[in-house]
């Protein structure tokens, strides 16, 4: 879809709703990961509501759908919120997040939740999973696009690099990967815990096409995706979008704070956060 016909205001509104619902879920569960959910809200909103990720809530396994693997399974609140907004289930039900008997597990679960393609949570698996989907799409000669969202911290897992190597080797130009470069992991900043930079150089050395963007600009996310599709017409390389993001984006007291990686907001925190997100 060309940029002219995309309603960026709608995408921004959906991103806001993803943020609000994510925080409500984590607050109700009294546990979860707000930081990394808020950092990918704009990416998910653009994929689902910018007409990039072909999906069908009435037939979640439709053969002509595209595939999204979210490798950072702890960002489950954002994923469930996006799927709820897209109509895969009643978004109100997500308030039972992390409760016994609820389908909305702490880390995303494809067996229990329609629209989730792979259960993840153990970091470093998702790109390999996405490669599998992309290889299958090539074998079947379909137009299916495969997307993956990876965290930056999980790139410290060696398996991630096995997967980067393999995607380039198998020329998976039907694969577009977002790296949620929020620069923070559980113990601190990535560059002090285990440095990832120069990240773009590394990906290019692994034979990937790359693009670095502001991961909170839905316009830039959209343009990067358009660029990736265009690249696939003349290049065999897979495409990585390094999305510079802010952990906890949208809530002033959570932004860039290591402490908000995996802690639930208390009543007063939620109230303040929702006020800011209005």
């Amino acid at each position: 879809m060309s940029s002219q016909t995309i309603n960026f205001e709608t995408i921004k509104e959906k991103a806001l709703q993803i943020r609000i619902n994510s925080l409500k879920m984590i607050h109700a569960a009294k546990s979860g990961h707000p930081g990394g959910s808020l950092s990918i809200a704009d990416i998910l909103a653009t994929l689902y509501f910018g007409d990039h990720l072909k999906h069908n809530p009435k037939d979640p396994k439709a053969e002509d759908r595209d595939i999204l693997v979210v490798s950072k399974g702890h960002s489950s609140p954002a994923v469930y919120s996006a799927l709820g907004l897209a109509g895969f289930f009643n978004i109100e039900d997500t308030i039972n997040f992390r409760k016994l008997g609820s389908p909305f597990q702490g880390h995303i679960d494809c067996v229990r939740v329609p629209g989730v393609e792979m259960s993840t949570g153990s970091l470093g698996h998702g790109l390999s999973n996405a490669n599998g989907f992309a290889i299958a799409a090539k074998l079947d000669k379909t137009k299916r696009k495969v997307f993956a969202v990876l965290s930056d911290g999980e790139l410290q897992e060696g398996q991630s690099w096995e997967a980067f190597m393999a995607a380039a080797h198998f020329q998976l130009n039907n694969l577009v990967v977002f790296i949620d470069r929020n620069r923070i992991q559980l113990d601190g900043f990535t560059e002090t815990t285990m440095a990832l930079n120069p990240l773009e150089d590394k990906l290019r050395a692994f034979n990937w096409n790359t693009e670095v963007i502001d991961g909170h600009s839905v316009e830039e996310i959209n343009s990067a995706l358009e660029k990736a599709y265009k690249a696939a017409e003349s290049s065999d390389k897979p495409f990585a979008i390094i999305a510079n993001t802010v952990k906890g984006k949208g809530v002033s007291f959570m932004e860039d704070q290591v402490s908000w990686h995996g802690v639930a907001p208390k009543d007063e925190d939620l109230e303040k956060a929702l006020e800011e997100l209005k």
């Binding site: 693997v69 698996h125 999973n129 989907f133």
Partner: peptide, 9 residues
Amino acid sequence: STAAGLAKA
């Protein structure tokens, strides 16, 4: 993990 993705496809 790639085999898992292929199976899901």
